[in-house]
Write a protein that binds this DNA or RNA. Structure first.
Lengths: 192, 192
DNA sequence: ACTGCTAACTTGACAGTGACAAGATTGGAG
DNA sequence: CTCCAATCTTGTCACTGTCAAGTTAGCAGT
């Protein structure tokens, strides 16, 4: 990652990414405006283009950052001795804590899919995901092919996170996403 | 719909919804342009506003249509005697067949959440979903609270559909979403 | 110190867009 | 036949993303 010290502005790149995350958290990715970000950062309207090329470039950088954060979160959970269930909860925790990043990470039409930085970050989080699933006791996932089991786990946590963030889940689940996730995910792993 | 060419264009509303679905399927919701839709339909740039108010109105109508289609699909599967697993597969089939609708249905920031037509359609598909889950044999979902079990099922199919559509799943899953879904969903229901 | 050099930013312009207001056209009810 | 309300058009505005060209700042080498 190219670190810049305060030239004219300071580090505009990081500032813009932060402002973008904030704006997306508030109004979603569709409403994001580069000019608005520039305004928030106190620079001219064309400044963002210099760092990210275009809008897709900015969102790609955000997505890459998101995959990095996700990998961090999963690694941290694993280091703490958590199993698959806790990795799943960590996935949801990440999605809720960084909803702007999450909202962009799985919308390829918004991104430069071939961006090397993005691909690297995706790779890192894929590995972290794979490692998390590898810790599963075979009996927990009832004899299924490990590869399929991993996809089942990924699907259920990804689905829960998406539905939670979209507000589609019933309100009687409470307002703690991690607890709710734990309940909903458990049936995949609990023994019969 | 027979081939008509009315000067006042007959059913613009339906035509625009169709064009919108097509455009979103191609380029995603973010790239959608009302003026482009108007061009495709051969009307003036301001015509869509009359039927939908604004962009959010159009997307809301699309989402409502999508919830209707989803309810239809689930009802059809249930009428054919399918269980929860097949309902799940039907959910995925719907998402893939109507990816434009699906892409919009769970992005509240693009919609008028309070639109009565939308709420009614959501209600209908919620009921269909609930009915589908209600057919589950208690032993299939291993003693979990039925309410939680339903959310688990919803999460796993929704997550699978989302990941499939975003192209995030590994390519060795094949190119048949229904077969792949069946494999990935099964671990939730299979007996220990 | 001064000379270039390059990255970081600005200024200015252009085509497209969503939204609104006001006018035109139509089918149909009375 | 008249009139009206729904449908659609025209014109306009502020705003957006992107590009081209210019400006400023840090820095290395002499």
């Amino acid at each position: 990652m190219t670190e810049t010290r305060p030239y004219h502005h300071g580090d505009l790149r990081r500032t813009l990414l932060g402002a973008a995350a904030e704006a997306i958290t508030e109004n979603g990715p569709a409403a994001l405006s580069l000019r608005d970000l520039a305004r928030r950062a106190g620079v001219s309207h064309a400044a963002p283009a210099h760092h990210f090329g275009d809008k897709a470039g900015l969102l790609t950088a955000l997505a890459a950052q998101g995959f990095g954060y996700l990998a961090d979160e999963l690694d941290r959970t694993r280091a703490a001795g958590g199993g698959v269930l806790e990795a799943g909860v960590a996935y949801v925790r990440f999605a809720v804590a960084h909803r702007a990043h999450f909202a962009v990470m799985f919308q390829p039409e918004l991104l430069n899919r071939a961006d090397p930085e993005l691909l690297a970050a995706q790779d890192r989080s894929s590995s972290a995901l794979r490692d998390a699933v590898a810790t599963v006791d075979r009996s927990e996932l009832r004899g299924a092919d490990a590869r399929i089991a991993g996809l089942s786990a990924w699907s259920i946590v990804h689905g829960f996170a998406t539905l939670w963030l979209s507000g589609a889940l019933p309100p009687d689940l409470g307002d703690n996403p991690e607890d709710a996730a734990r309940q909903v995910i458990r049936p995949l792993f609990a023994r019969g």
